[in-house]
């Protein structure tokens, strides 16, 4: 157990080191786009969005939940990228030829992606705060938001890693990634509430786990516990199922790649 932890912490430290040396690309690819959504998109639609439709005091406060979950989505889906590069340049083989527990590398990646995502969610909530968005459920609500984010993120990261282990080239990986990300956002309640969508879109959006996550995070920010709790309970059930499916698929892909 002590050895297992030594492996995982050394491998996690590697991801942290990489990040600290890739500051600029990280800043531009991960943090900024999400803030742009919140700051530009949020302010841009401030008057175009009908508060009767969004059921929120203003569009930014409505959008905050969507941007939080979008951050989780993008980080999760990109979570396997570094493993993909490790696979392609032989670094993964080098790691797997050492007597480490077979799951250490993967676990280190989960820990890292979850930590970074949580940090970014906090930054987004902080920026939203500057625009006057005050989470209705307070610190405990923020903790609940982080928990929901992590539960969604685990499944997404597992999908991403499964793809990293399965694809032939990183070109394929990024095509699938680009193809997945935007439809997932549009076919969710991130930008517009389900009730305001065309029927076929809201129908599809109901099958998107992202919608469930947003519908739980949004009342945590806008309304309060009494309205949020049923949604939070529901999303936990949905995410347990989602994670179980993703982890099962991920484990299969991993075993196939390593056999």
């Amino acid at each position: 157990m002590k050895e297992y932890w030594q492996e995982i912490s050394a491998l996690t430290m590697r991801w942290v080191r990489r990040l600290s040396r890739e500051k600029f690309s990280m800043l531009f690819t991960l943090v900024q786009p999400m803030l742009f959504w919140l700051i530009f998109f949020g302010n841009l639609f401030q008057r175009a969005a009908d508060t009767q439709v969004t059921q929120a005091p203003n569009y930014i406060s409505f959008l905050a939940a969507g941007v939080v979950v979008m951050t989780v989505l993008n980080n999760g889906l990109a979570g396997g990228v570094d493993l993909l590069f490790d696979k392609e340049n032989g670094f993964l083989e080098r790691l797997m030829s050492t007597p480490i527990h077979r799951t250490s590398v993967i676990l280190s990646r989960f820990i890292f992606v979850m930590a970074i995502t949580s940090l970014q969610v906090l930054v987004i909530l902080g920026v939203a705060f500057l625009f006057g968005v005050r989470p209705a459920t307070g610190l405990l609500g923020i903790a609940a938001i982080l928990l929901i984010g992590m539960m969604f993120g685990v499944g997404l990261t597992a999908i991403s890693m499964a793809m990293a282990f399965s694809v032939k080239s990183h070109g394929d990986f990024f095509s699938v990634l680009g193809f997945l990300s935007l439809p997932m956002i549009f076919l969710s309640s991130a930008l517009v509430p389900l009730a305001a969508m065309p029927g076929w879109m809201s129908f599809l959006a109901k099958f998107n786990p992202m919608t469930w996550a947003i519908d739980a995070v949004r009342p945590l920010i806008l309304s309060g516990w009494s309205e949020a709790l049923p949604h939070v309970g529901m999303v936990i059930v949905v995410m347990v199922i989602f994670d179980a499916l993703c982890l099962y698929g991920g484990a299969k892909a991993f075993r196939r790649a390593m056999g």
Binding site: Q6, E7, S9, A10, R14, N89, R94, T98, I100
Partner: peptide
């Protein structure tokens, strides 16, 4: 065993020493 994969099985962001330190931890 020790294994030396084909060229460039290297993390360009880590220093040479950090590579060896990482492996030292993996070999406990």
């Amino acid at each position: 065993i020790g294994y030396v994969p084909q060229e460039r099985a290297i993390d360009r962001f880590l220093t040479g020493r950090e590579h060896l330190e990482l492996l030292a931890a993996l070999y406990h």
